[in-house]
Amino acid sequence: MDYNPLKLENQICFPLYAASRKIIKLYTPLLEPLGITYTQYITLLALWERDGETVKALGERLFLDSGTLTPLLKKLESQGLVDRRRSHEDERQVFIHLTEKGKALRELALEVPHKIVSCVDMSMEDAMELYRLLYLLLKEEGESGVCSIEQ
């Protein structure tokens, strides 16, 4: 049987895309009562770990560009969950700080990971291996985030 490089099932991108959509779909009903989207949730997760990061550092951790992150942060700010503050030393740097409301939301989100784990039928060994492989893939990007493949 000949290998067809353009067959959907032969693309690594497709199961990654479909699995990502499935996982986000599982998160959606759990996050709705908190009043946040999945992308807002992962942003808050990062800030609950390291409050007061720059927009640039936060974007790097989340693999989000500023065009995606800036409107997201503005929305979180309008919800009263974060404050954006310009650096006094360098006006180009903006730091993101959780508000008291943003910090309090962490307690309400504590059950989300446990509920997600119960929805995914995967052994702990498989989950750990998937995690390892996905981060291996994420680390494969060059410094610019773009793979330089000769054409």
Score class of each variant (00 low, 15 high):
M1H: 07
N4P: 00
L8D: 00
I12W: 03
C13S: 08
A18G: 02
R21P: 03
K22H: 03
I24H: 02
K25R: 12
L26A: 03
Y27D: 09
T28M: 02
G35Q: 07
T39R: 14
Y41V: 04
T43W: 09
A46C: 10
W48A: 03
R50M: 04
R50C: 04
D51V: 01
E53M: 13
T54L: 09
V55R: 11
K56G: 00
A57I: 06
L58Q: 05
L58P: 14
E60V: 07
E60W: 07
E60K: 14
L62T: 05
L62Q: 07
L62W: 03
L64K: 10
T68L: 09
L69D: 06
T70C: 02
T70S: 05
T70Q: 04
L72A: 00
L76E: 04
E77Y: 04
G80K: 10
L81W: 04
V82K: 04
V82E: 01
V82D: 00
D83E: 11
R84G: 00
R85C: 00
R86Y: 07
S87E: 13
E91Y: 10
R92P: 01
R92E: 06
R92A: 01
Q93Y: 12
E100I: 03
E100G: 08
K101Q: 12
R106Q: 11
E107C: 04
L108Y: 05
E111A: 13
H114R: 15
H114G: 14
K115G: 06
C119L: 15
V120W: 11
S123K: 13
M124R: 14
E125S: 13
L130G: 10
Y131A: 10
Y131L: 14
R132K: 15
Y135M: 12
L137Y: 14
L137Q: 11
E141N: 11
E141A: 09
G142F: 14
G145C: 09
V146Q: 14
S148H: 11
I149E: 00
I149D: 00
